[in-house]
Design a protein around this nucleic acid. Sequence first.
DNA 1: GTCTATACTGTGATAGAC
DNA 2: GTCTATCACAGTATAGAC
Lengths: 216, 216
Amino acid sequence: MAIGKPSQDRRARRHEATKAEIVDAAWKVAREKGLAGLSLSDVAAQVGMRVPSLYSYFASKNEIYDAMFAQGNDELIEFIKDRQANLPNKPRERLRGGFRIYFDFCTQDPVRYQLLFQRTIPGFEPSEASYAKAIEVLRLFRDDLASIGLAGDQQDEDLLTALSSGLVDQQVANDPGGDRWAGLVDAVADMAYDHVTKKQRRRHQATLGPQKGGQA
Amino acid sequence: MAIGKPSQDRRARRHEATKAEIVDAAWKVAREKGLAGLSLSDVAAQVGMRVPSLYSYFASKNEIYDAMFAQGNDELIEFIKDRQANLPNKPRERLRGGFRIYFDFCTQDPVRYQLLFQRTIPGFEPSEASYAKAIEVLRLFRDDLASIGLAGDQQDEDLLTALSSGLVDQQVANDPGGDRWAGLVDAVADMAYDHVTKKQRRRHQATLGPQKGGQA
DNA sequence: GTCTATACTGTGATAGAC
DNA sequence: GTCTATCACAGTATAGAC
C-alpha cells in the first residue's frame, strides 16, 4: 500500500470516512424500519445525499449489508476479547460467562443479531472477507471452550450453540428489549456444563474398561 | 350465513378455492425466493393471473402473508394433535416426544418456520384471527405439559421453549435440510426434564421445611 | 362478480453532465 | 464526487370491459 502522492492518501481516508458514515446511517435506518426494510432512499436522506451518490461508495445494497455484517462481527470480536479477559477460571463459572457474553451481545441489538446470525435477507451472502470474521468469532469461542477442557467434540459444541442461541432467540422474538430469558442464562449454562462433563466422564470410564462404581 | 340464492353459495366456494390456490402459489414462491422475497408478480404468474387480479382476493400482500400464517398454524395444530395422540405417557418420554414434534415440524419447512416464529417481515403483523391460532398452539403445548405435571411455572415454560427453539434455530440456520442437531433432541429434552423436576423437588421440600436428607 | 388495462408511487440501479 | 435523468420493476389502486 501507500502508493502515490500524499493527497491521494487524504482522499482515500476521506472516502473511508464517508463509507463509515453511510454504514452508520444504514444501522440507524435498519433499527427504525427493520433490517429487511432498509431502503437506500432513507440512507441517502440520513447522510444528506441523493441515492445515486451512494453508488460511489458501495456497488449495491447488498454491499452495504456486507459492510454492516463485517462491522457487527468486528464489534463482537472486540466484545468477546474484552469480556473474556475478565472471566473467572473455574470451568463452570467460565462457561456461564461465555453464555452471558453471547446473550448480552445479541440482545443488546436485535437487528444486528438478525443480520449476523439469522439468514433472512433474500439474496444476501456475506463476502469472503466478512465471512472470515464470522469464522474468527467461532474460533474465539472454541478456544475458550478448550481452556475449560471442553473442545474437539462436534456434538458438544453443537449442543452449546443450540442452548445459548435458544435463549437469545426467545428473548429477541418474544420480549425484545426485556429480560424475561436473561435470568435463565446461568441455569442453562449449568445444565450444559453438567451434561457435557458427565458425558466426558462416561467416555473416560469406557476407555478404562468397566470399573466398580460404573453404570448400574 | 347461507343468505341469498344457491348460486351465491357456489360462487363463494369458488372464491375460497381460488384464494387457497393463491396461498399455495405464495408458499411455492416463498420457498424458492425466500420469505421476504415473495413478490405478487411471481404469485400471479404461478396461478395464471395478472397482478391486479390478486386484489379481488386479498387486499394487500400482507393479507397473503396473514393467510399463510393462519394456514401454517392450522397445519401445526393438526400436526400436534396427530402426534400427541401417539405419545407415551411416561413423563420423560412424553417430553421427549413434545420436543420432537416441534423440531420435526419446524425443520421440515424452514420458510414456514420463519413466518410463524421469527418476526422478520417488516410491517407484517398477524391479524387477530390468525394470532388466535398461534395462541391455540401454545395452549396445546401447555396442556400437554400439565399432563406431565409440568405446568403453571412461567420460568419452566420459558426454559422449555428456549431449549427446543435453540435446536430448531441452529438446525435451520446452519444445516437446513440436514440432521446435525436432530440427534441432540432427546438429550436436550432429558436435560430439561431433569432440571425442571429437580426444581420441583426442591420447591416441594421447601414447603415441608428442612428434613433429614435435605440439601447438605 | 371477475379479470384486464392503466396508472401512481417507491426502490434499486445505471448513464452521463458538471 | 455529486448531481439530474432515466430505467426496470415492485406494490398498490381504480375504472371499466365482459
